[in-house]
Amino acid sequence: MISHKDSMRILIADDDEDDRAFFSDAMMELKMNNELTLFNDGKELMDYLANPDIILPHLLFLDLNMPRKSGFECLKEIRSDLRFKEVSIAIYSTSSSEKDIEETFVEGANIYINKPNDFSKLKKVVKEVLNINWQFHSSGLNRETFFFSI
């Protein structure tokens, strides 16, 4: 069981510097005990994940629109590797299209976040996502049916 005292390991891959900054600021302001690692794009993230010695993250944020390797490609690759089956994947994208949401869920994403246009909203969203993900980790909920779109 992850008690609230345990830190949650979180990775985020987003090619937009500002978005990464907003995200880490939001995390910081939430004052939750989390370990956040930032990646500049999907390729960088996948290279990191390829190392078998790393401690697996609990939660992974993927921007969909990234150069070199898109979030969708990362999602597919990660989901085809059983090593990451316990990792929750959150899509973090500007697109709010139903199609993108459904497609990423079908491909194995658990969380879909439409990038908010207000910082306090972002904080709220991140909090909710961490919360619900924590619930899934701690309460033994079925991962196959774990979807959260916000």
């Binding site: 869920f105 196959e144 979807f147």
Partner: peptide
């Protein structure tokens, strides 16, 4: 939700 699970 059901549609997504079925598709998956």
């Amino acid at each position: 939700f059901k549609r997504i699970v079925d598709k998956r």
